[in-house]
Amino acid sequence: MTTKTHVQTTINGEPVDFLCEPRQSLLECLRDVVGLTGTKEGCNDGNCGACTVKLDGRIVTSCLVLGVEAQGADIETIEGVAEGTNLHPLQLAFLENAALQCGICTPGFIVSAKSLLDQNPNPTEHEIRFWLANNLCRCTGYDKIVRAVQDAAKKMQEAS
């Protein structure tokens, strides 16, 4: 039996070190150790996407990553999406389009959708729906989420 492991990461651009047990998921480390509770726990088995974070450039379900695997990794969470008090266009679009009700799935949807728009600024509805298929929402019926992503894509293109 080992003791806790020292893990060095970069989270939202800042160096962050934490101690964790090998059995703790990255999700548990982010929420319970680092204190970044924006990332949510839903199903805890990789189906719902509430715990989506970007890990070394790829979005993953952080419940299916061990904290110790994050040694040296670059992690982006929902806390890194807004710039200070300025919301990201996706966050604004989610508010304006009422793309959330209870809000538990929203951080995961925003992080997933941001990674889509970062690589594909003008996705089709089909592409949006496939990309977000790994994120579940039990409130909205998805339509408002898809429209919010389309709205954000449009506004981001107009702004650039």
Partner: peptide, 9 residues
């Protein structure tokens, strides 16, 4: 297999 989030791993 899975979705985008799973396919990264």
């Amino acid at each position: 297999i899975g979705g985008v989030l799973i396919q990264g791993r």
